[in-house]
């Protein structure tokens, strides 16, 4: 049955696009989670919603307007944080609500919600066109290339900004570059899970991978694996059960997360009881 599903062109496009997005979301997400900016994806996707509304309002391809608006907003937020010394979570809240507000105002001006807008809100991976696929492949390649170039420095900055700065790194430049590629990643991913669920793809695979207790590189690899698995399983299940793919992808990632947490808890419990048994045997 799986082979039958894979024979469809739309399914092949969906899987390729989905796996690429899964990989870049995991990698960018790992840095976001560790920088304690988990809600950044949410904020950017809400700003993107405003950008998409501008595109639909002005008849421009909505993802391009979303790219421009989101990058400007992300840079603006970073500048605002530095300038006004606002805590990161408050800056994210400002961005999230104002982005959504812009979208709602523009949509109300243009006469209400359209089918197009719904596909951006909830994702439409099975409707990925060749044009979308090319855009996703180009964006993913650029994001991966930049990350591989700044990987060491970005990891150090995420670990400890002050030590990285003392180590001679341009922390400010690395942070700005990262914010731009994180914004681009979020916008490219909207096609997959939509504005409303994007942050789950950024956060869930990473917090699952972090619970495995490995080093940075291995955590990143595990997170990519979990994310890609969630996308593949989610898309196939959604087709077989005729349910929304975005929801199926996020629920798969949630199931993997819960299994990992429960598994870790159980292993810990077994180890503890083993130690207790050994203690009793020795005292006998």
């Amino acid at each position: 049955m799986v082979f039958e599903i894979l024979a469809f062109g739309f399914m092949q496009r969906a899987l390729v696009a989905g796996v690429m997005i899964a990989i870049i979301c995991s990698i960018i997400g790992l840095f976001l989670v560790l920088k304690r900016h988990s809600l950044f994806g949410d904020a950017m996707s809400h700003v993107a919603f405003g950008g998409i509304a501008i595109g639909l309002f002005t008849n421009v391809y909505p993802l391009w307007t979303a790219f421009i608006v989101s990058i400007l907003a992300a840079l603006g937020m970073t500048k605002l944080r530095e300038f006004a010394k606002i805590p990161a979570d408050s800056a994210v809240a400002v961005l999230l609500s104002s982005g959504l507000a812009i979208g709602i105002v523009l949509i109300s001006l243009s006469g209400g919600f359209t089918l197009d807008l719904f596909s951006f809100l909830f994702g439409s991976i099975l409707l990925v066109s060749v044009q979308d696929l090319i855009m996703i492949l180009i964006v993913s390649s650029i994001v991966l290339a930049i990350i591989s170039l700044i990987y060491k420095g970005l990891t150090y900055v995420t670990f400890d900004e002050e030590q990285a700065s003392v180590g001679g790194l341009s922390v400010k430049n690395i942070n700005y570059l990262f914010i731009v590629i994180a914004s681009v990643t979020v916008i490219a991913s909207i096609r997959l899970v939509g504005v409303l669920l994007i942050s789950s793809l950024i956060v869930l695979p990473n917090i699952t991978a972090i619970t495995m207790g490995k080093g940075f590189k291995k955590t990143a690899i595990i997170s990519c694996g979990i994310s890609a698995c969630s996308v593949i399983v989610g898309i196939i299940v959604s087709y077989v059960m005729n349910i929304a793919p975005s929801g199926a992808i996020v629920l798969t990632a949630t199931a993997i997360f819960l299994t990992a947490v429960l598994g870790k808890h159980t292993v810990r419990k077994i180890r503890r009881s083993d130690i207790n048994i050994q203690d009793v045997t020795m005292s006998d």
Binding site: L34, T155, F159, G167, K214, G215, F216
Partner: peptide
């Protein structure tokens, strides 16, 4: 999530 080796390698960036 970082190993001893990874932290030490930061010193060589």
């Amino acid at each position: 999530p970082v190993t001893v080796e990874e932290v030490v390698s930061f010193g060589l960036i």
